[in-house]
């Protein structure tokens, strides 16, 4: 078949232009939904352009035209065959208050595994410090060197220091805490790529450090100081790290694919939006935890009574529990999935 090229282009060009315009519009307005007649027209144009490309594909003499039609068809293909939801306008409040807890609950099994691994680490660290005085020096990283001494002496020093202990450095300290903790969370997620093993090791090690410090203070009779010091920021920081571990475990589970017959790419495609939501929520939680740790946790009795700090921590924990678990009844309700970004 010989094509009269000028006539072919003249006849088909309006369709190409219309398809290109539609694609540009969809690209410019990602949250725009096509009406039924628009969608039908869009599909018809895609088929026409595909057919035109099929006709021109064997023509050696029109490489530019072929590339143009190939590119146009590729763009339309990406829109037509995309089964995931179109990106909606990002609404931060709805994302954090509705989407984040819903995704957390969707993968709550991995969260349970996450805290169990951490708890095993806490118990290990606790027993280690009870049985071996040198355990702290052996396990504690350099950044926690201030916890290597006698807890009772540290408490006495903290309580006797007058005035604003961190004066002039609260913001810097808060920023360092945020950066460090968010970095650890990203590592916990990324290590999920080791089929979850790296995440498990990180959670366990995190638990060991927590256990070492906590039991050391308890054994020294400083339980009230410990609660007043850790609770205000720890009730947010620790769950945030656990949720990051949850992400890593979800990723590891998708890679292993046990009990899921979908191909690897489909499994990873399915969890991608959830992982992004969870890690975003973790970042927000850790910003709050960093601010609390720097501006509140570092003040001790008599500046701020321990009862106030412990009460503050308990209130935070109650709010967090309500926040993450309150919509459980709605999760199965019709339309719940629509809120997904």
């Amino acid at each position: 078949m010989i094509i009269d090229l000028p006539r072919f282009i003249a006849a088909e060009r309006p369709s190409w232009t219309e398809l290109e315009t539609t694609l540009d519009r969809l690209q410019a307005q990602p949250d725009r939904q096509l009406a039924l007649d628009e969608a039908q027209r869009f599909h018809l144009l895609y088929q026409k352009v595909s057919a035109d490309l099929g006709r021109i594909a064997t023509f050696a003499s029109e490489p530019e035209l072929r590339r143009y039609l190939e590119a146009l068809t590729a763009r339309a293909y990406a829109e037509i065959h995309e089964t995931r939801e179109r990106g909606r306008r990002f609404r931060p409040a709805r994302w954090f208050f509705a989407e984040f807890p819903r995704v957390f609950r969707r993968h709550v099994g991995a969260f349970h595994v996450s805290w169990i691994i951490t708890l095993v680490g806490v118990l290990f660290g606790g027993f280690a410090v009870m049985l071996d005085d040198e355990a702290k020096e052996a396990v504690m990283p350099a950044m926690f060197a201030n916890h290597l001494g006698d807890p009772a002496k540290r408490v006495a020093a903290e309580e006797s220091s007058a005035g604003d202990r961190g004066a002039g450095g609260h913001s810097t300290f808060a920023s360092q805490l945020m950066v460090n903790n968010i970095g650890v969370s990203i590592k916990a997620v990324a290590l999920g790529l080791t089929y979850g093993l790296g995440t498990i090791v990180l959670l366990f090690y995190n638990g060991v450090i927590l256990g070492l410090v906590a039991i050391d203070y308890v054994l020294a009779g400083q339980s009230v100081f410990l609660a007043g010091w850790l609770l205000p920021h720890g009730v947010i920081e620790s769950p945030a790290i656990l949720i990051a571990g949850q992400c890593g475990l979800v990723l590891g589970k998708a890679l292993i694919g046990h009990g899921d017959r979908a191909p690897l790419t489909a499994r990873l495609r399915a969890i991608g939006p959830d992982l992004a939501t969870l890690i975003g929520g973790v970042a927000v939680m850790l910003v709050w935890a960093g601010l609390v740790e720097s501006f509140l946790s570092q003040y001790h009795q008599p500046v701020i009574p321990y009862a106030v700090k412990i009460a503050f921590g308990c209130v935070e924990l109650a709010v967090l529990s309500w926040f993450l678990g309150s919509g459980r009844a709605k999760d199965g309700a019709p339309g719940a999935e629509e809120v997904r970004a």
């Binding site: 090229l5 000028p6 282009i9 060009r13 035209l65």
Partner: peptide, 11 residues
């Protein structure tokens, strides 16, 4: 004649 310049640039 009639072919060149008829199509748009590749997106």
């Amino acid at each position: 004649t009639g072919v060149e310049g008829k199509v748009g640039a590749v997106p």
